[in-house]
Design a protein around this nucleic acid. Sequence first.
DNA 1: GGCTGGCACTCTGCCCGTGCGAGTGCCAGT
DNA 2: ACTGGCACTCGCACGGGCAGAGTGCCAGCC
Lengths: 340, 340
Amino acid sequence: MAHDERRLEVLRAIVQDYVSTNDPVGSKALAERHDLGVSPATIRNDMAVLEEQGYITQPHTSAGRVPTDKGYRLFVDRLSAVKPLSTAERRAIERFLDGAVDLHDVLSRSVRLLAQLTRQVAVVQYPALSRSAVRHLEVVQLAAARLMLVLITDTGRVEQRIVDTPVDVGADAVAELRTLLNAAFAGAKLVDAGGKVPDLLDTAPPHLRGLVATVSATLLETLVEPGEDRLVIGGTANLARGNALDFPGTLQPLLEALEEQVVVLRLMTQVDASTVLVRIGEENAHEALTGASFVSVGYGAGDRALGGLGVVGPTRMDYPMNMAAVRAVARYVGHLLAES
Amino acid sequence: MAHDERRLEVLRAIVQDYVSTNDPVGSKALAERHDLGVSPATIRNDMAVLEEQGYITQPHTSAGRVPTDKGYRLFVDRLSAVKPLSTAERRAIERFLDGAVDLHDVLSRSVRLLAQLTRQVAVVQYPALSRSAVRHLEVVQLAAARLMLVLITDTGRVEQRIVDTPVDVGADAVAELRTLLNAAFAGAKLVDAGGKVPDLLDTAPPHLRGLVATVSATLLETLVEPGEDRLVIGGTANLARGNALDFPGTLQPLLEALEEQVVVLRLMTQVDASTVLVRIGEENAHEALTGASFVSVGYGAGDRALGGLGVVGPTRMDYPMNMAAVRAVARYVGHLLAES
DNA sequence: GGCTGGCACTCTGCCCGTGCGAGTGCCAGT
DNA sequence: ACTGGCACTCGCACGGGCAGAGTGCCAGCC
């Protein structure tokens, strides 16, 4: 019916006004600012229904209405059109990211860019090791019985680990080790690396077997284990901007959760590269993220999602804009990584 | 005279009480909590003098007194004994840092540790490239005309750069290049690397000369240039703890300055490994750091300062404790890096 | 000469009562 | 089904009054 139609329109108007003004919105203001074609009294009736259905609420009697998490959810799912970025913004993205000299540079530029574009906290995940393959393994000798392994992945990630060997190692053994490791692992997905170890041990000459075992054990332990994924975070200053206005109580728990990384990383596991994922308020199922929404998407080369990036902000955020920005940056990062 | 003596004692008492209670401290409370051996009235006289000399001030008539930046400065310089860490704290440091698997791990553990120990924002600088030497240079081919250079320094830092070459490069050329670069640069301080380039070009076989020139140019440009130094920051949640109590206005400018990194890095250039540097409030000569103090020290192997670490907090901080913690962590980090 | 107790003064923070404005819910009318 | 009108409910801003904390100064004491 035209009934429901209009009620949704009212909800959309409430969300939009509330996001831009941060004041609970009343029926009169709504009627003035939007062409709903009906009087405030009618809008009041609609609001009463919306409130009963749980989409909006009033902070106290005789204040205006404010969207609930459920209201934002409906807005995001059914009422918002993705706001295309202006060409100026697209150019800014290109200009900002094009000078990057390595992976870390790409990611830290992305995070700054995203923070600036959305005026929210931005998070960018390093390409997941679990989805990367070995491009090269380097072995550098630090001391007689201490080696440094350097893993270079096809996503441009460079990871280092220090290995203490049970016995002293000669320079020639290091060279052999390097050759063996690369022969065994080069091109292999990191998740498959475990399966290659028996083969590797078979082909290794007897006098190197102990060394190879130690080194590959370290490699697997510290690199293939989950929990090794990292985040770059930026724009936390944006949290302090609206301050008391946006978040209940202090920022402390939220900042702690962000620094913890693991909370955000867990959310990141669910992203894929094709759709923008939005988690609103309570949906995040983490105390510190109450009142916060998380907008994220995977980035990747082609259909392979290498990692995720997104923004964290108050539930009262401009969802269409943030979704557009996140998607645009993810696409561009995907392109950059595909090239390198 | 015993006069001045006691006045300083009064200042010390004011600083200590104010730091622990965050309330302007009055003469009566002072007389009760400290054994100064005189009455509140006498203390009032001393306070009047201290105020005239600029060491303390009152927020408004008939509130207690609060130390000024100048007062904290005197306190730090002459009135505070460095508080030794408890053995429990020393053990915590060891336990916390001993499991580190690589440089990044050491630094990020340090920053978490320091943040936890001091309940302030902690910053740790990567070992400065300018003070590092080349341990190994690795060249990995990404595409026909694109190489990745991986620099491993004697401080355990691993940096990567992508180089687009003017012409396609063969696998044998890559190997030759690797050998040449290592022969030329291995063991060299990065600041001296520029001087080695002419020699390198001379010894390079003619067919590689163009390639070597391109590659070494990139190397110098992007690695030897200052501004390449990085920070790890942690514990920003501690800023939000006291919130309005500690900082004037919002946290936004401070968080921005921290993210900017360059502000903190500039402060870091002045550290050395033997003395703890304390900059109080206005001394930082940066608007965002008004009301903030910065306690830092260099860490290093032996007498060589590789980088700095420190904490940032409100001027109203426990200086002796922070200085002790910063120094202890710096020592331990120094040891760890000396080993690797 | 330096220290002390006493006293008057000042200023902030808090409580509380009041008035205003915004916004609602409901009802009768079209 | 929509609209205008109306009574009602709160939150908030404003202002007066009160209590408490802390000071500066002064006269007296050791």
